[in-house]
Amino acid sequence: MTTITESAVRRRNGPDWWRWTGRLFLVLLLGFTVMPMVWMIITSLKTGFAAMQYPPQWWPAEPTLQNYTRLLDPSGRIGQDFLHYFWNSLWVSTITTILAVVVAVPAAYAFSRFRFPGRNFLFFAVLLRNMFPAVVFLVPLFILMKALGLVNTHGSLILTYLTFGLPLAIWLLKGFYDNIPIQLEQAARIDGATRFQAFIYIVMPLSTPGIIATSIYSFIGAWNEYIYAYTFLTKQSQMTLPVGIQRFFSENATDWPGLMAATFIMSVPVVVLFLVLQKYFVRALTEGAVKH
């Protein structure tokens, strides 16, 4: 323990010192975070020739959008393929998200409100799904999908992605339901609602932020997934973006500006989605999951 005078002196000097350290730290961290993204964009604005120079052009001498127009041109072969991948990703991610919410909402509600035998065990089992890496399930799931006739279909991906998203979705949503006073549902049931009506009219509207947060998480997870898509899909026409762009550029591996443009386009939807809705995600973590 320090004496009061000692700490009083330190308190007078303390906050400023702390604040400046914090600011410096944030600036450095921001540089570390943003630099790769900036370089990705700068490179994507160069021609293949301009990118292969030493020392590099820190700013493109002749900025060009040709990499983007080529990827997004529906009349060219590359554009057609790329747009196809994009559409596949969008489709798989959207369906996964909808199903994840439909499945997670009742499960989270039950884990929050009911005390049935086996509740803890089942809740643990659901949470444990997060512990297993995708790779160790590849072989058995591939065989399973083959048996179900789902290989080379988006169904195989959707079914698999559903299980990635579910544990966190259930956990986040359960946190939300835990914070909704049970008296609101009791009041509704006394006011003439059935259990189900109380859930639909009272609980659901109050858990919208949680459902939005869950949806973002599921969507991003599905959009970014690589390993299963890489294994389950062999047909070009079915491929999603993370696998698709790889196929593209491993053929002529040196087209770095094109690859950067493709990763940029691939990142835009999830980044925009997340930035617009991030407050829900942060709120979900703060109100539900982290607080005990």
């Binding site: 609101l184 009041a187 006394i190």
Partner: peptide, 20 residues
């Protein structure tokens, strides 16, 4: 009987007003 069929009304400690 379900609460809704008991012809009762209830006032709760925290009022339980529907916030939305």
């Amino acid at each position: 009987l379900d609460p809704k069929d008991r012809d009762i009304a209830m006032v709760f400690q925290n009022y339980a007003l529907y916030p939305q």
